[in-house]
Write a protein that binds this DNA or RNA. Sequence first.
DNA 1: GTCTATAAAAGGATAGAC
DNA 2: GTCTATCCTTTTATAGAC
Lengths: 222, 222
Amino acid sequence: MARTQDQRRAETRARLIDAAADLFARKGFHAVSAEAVAEAAGRTTGALYNHFGGKEGLLLALLEVWKDQTAAELLAGFEDVIVLDERLAALFEVLTRDDGDRGASWLLLEMELWLHGARDPEIGEPLARRYAGIRARLAEGLADWADTAGVPLRRSPERTATAVLGLLIGCAVQHRLDPPAVETRAVVEGLRDLLGLPDGPPHDHHLSRLAPKGEHPCGSTC
Amino acid sequence: MARTQDQRRAETRARLIDAAADLFARKGFHAVSAEAVAEAAGRTTGALYNHFGGKEGLLLALLEVWKDQTAAELLAGFEDVIVLDERLAALFEVLTRDDGDRGASWLLLEMELWLHGARDPEIGEPLARRYAGIRARLAEGLADWADTAGVPLRRSPERTATAVLGLLIGCAVQHRLDPPAVETRAVVEGLRDLLGLPDGPPHDHHLSRLAPKGEHPCGSTC
DNA sequence: GTCTATAAAAGGATAGAC
DNA sequence: GTCTATCCTTTTATAGAC
């Protein structure tokens, strides 16, 4: 197989961005040297500067990739049909899981980017568009759900999405510092409030079964 | 007036912490040199190292001061009596106001500290205690309010407080990147959901008047 | 206690070889 | 395109004067 130059170039680019995502998330942008990123990617600073023009450019490129990648992942649970306690819980756990792999640092890198974006419009603008996109997709999902489940939203899909995303982020932030203080159940209950659902059962998940499309998910107990 | 050495020392300490709060919030911890902080405080690095042993120590000391200072400010609106739309709105605006002074950078410094705390337990532990304290006071305030207003909370004061704080933080984060996308009204409505209140009036604030203690704040329209 | 001066290290960025 | 070698700047941290 004859690798073209383009392929090689693309791989270097990908490796650098990958390494940057990992290191920036774990240690923070300023705490990581350009050389450290290059080394982790199995390349040198020369390649890094050739591709991105510097550390800042690398951050920007990282954001662009990050943009679509995680939005899809986060919203996978909502794209479908019925909002269940488990689905809401899973949504939150995407933000808070602390396994060894990249999931661990999702929130960290997200906040790292946010912090830069809040200070530098060049980062802030694309980041704002990213959040807007997430909200839009979430709003769409929520509207569909409300339609399907027959539970009218308490307000516009857009406002509901903003609040839902806000609650998720804010609870994840608290959770990271003190996991036991933010039970998943508390978050799910809050999300139910925002969606205009009554309380679920106190300690089990009987309401969480899937319901056939068009039917109300909770039978008559909701 | 004869200044004692202790007074002078205390002032230097205060000036350094003050300057650090300002600079760390505006530019980020790593982007600010120890010398820059010292200069902004009208001192030199010698004094800084004498007091705090380095930049890291300064950050830690800053956190300790920050700890009580802003919790009180944030919760001032809740300590009192009735939860009104205006009070809820004011609560959010404490987090998002962007005037020239320190209020502008409150959220930035908060996230700056959070990011360090998420990576370094030495920062994370006191920070976690700080958040726990805020939640506890907020929970107390909410319980009192529910009692006074005769509106039972949908769940325990602790869980309610966690969700309320989460929604505030998460919405403030979104707001910072894209203010028009997060209307104050949307946040207030979300908070009302969490507190188990019905929707307020669509576009005015007739329900927001103060009510005498012990009476239901909204008369019969709530 | 605070300042001045400086040592020692690290990081960002570039030039030229291959 | 990528690597090696290097320059220049900034930063941390300390030692000693006052």
